[in-house]
Amino acid sequence: MNWVSMLALIVSATLVYSTPLIFTALGGTFSERGGIVNVGLEGIMVMGAFSSVIFNLTFADTFGAATPWLAALVAGIVGVVFSCIHAVATINFRADHIISGTVINLLAPALSVFLVKAIYAKGQTDNIAQNFGYFTFPGLAKIPVLGPIFFKDTSLMAYIAIVVAFIAYWVMFKTKFGLRLRSVGENPQAADTLGINVYRYRYAGVLLSGFLGGIGGAIFAQSIAGNFSVGTIVGQGYISMAAMIFGKWNPIGAMGAALFFGFAQSLSIIGAQLPGISSIPSVYLQIAPYILTIVVLVLFLGKAVAPKADGTNYIKSK
């Protein structure tokens, strides 16, 4: 293997594994910037993965190659519906955010596997016929060296994810919506006094996290897993949450962290093909993202960086 094809392998594997993390971590930033801690990202990804696979299996003949894209959209909508549970519980019903998120994480695998069993009478779906596959950028792929590494047989969704991250940054820091969302997460009383509807913006944050988390799950299912079972999403939601924290609740930071975690995850898969890496026991690569998150939290972040009212319920006075 020459070094160009080796780099191409690493880059494309990194991109494929990062994409679901990027979408979900971006979702997390919206929710937490609005002041709602969303541990339920894991569960939302499960529902996204589940619904996209069901949609894909059912409509692959009708929509052909467009199926995975439509399925991702459907998964986003399912994510929004599912995140409503978390939103209602935390925003209106004053539930503890972490308990409510944990309920989401307990409910999602149970509900989805129950539905799979009810629909297909077995615990695991068939493999999907249409997946995201690989994409070659016309023209760009011809650039010497860089072309084969970045633009040939790569993941189109990953580039979309990166663009979405920049859009998310723009929305959060350059628009009125973003300013209000952040104010609601920093100091809801002050925001309320200024006439901002705290509950509405918190809903917007949580539902956006449901949409992006659902898409994240759909991308994982349709580009990596290929089917749905109880073992499809194991910890990706938590890694996304870690990426969000690692990225200091900033969309672009979260994207960078997600790329890094995707790289670490892909190494444990493709490591066997790479000289040098193949001699490291894969367990070190598997646990690296988790250990790193803890180290980063301890070394670089105190408790001061999170949005100030993150995780607290706001009770409007009469």
């Binding site: 549970i85 519980a89 308990i99 307990l106 409910l107 695998p109 149970a110 129950f114």
Partner: peptide, 19 residues
């Protein structure tokens, strides 16, 4: 009935405890 209904019940119970 699939076993998963049990976990749905458990999750729902905790949801109601939380609210």
């Amino acid at each position: 009935v699939p076993f998963e209904i049990v976990n749905i019940v458990i999750a729902s119970i905790i949801f109601f405890v939380a609210i």
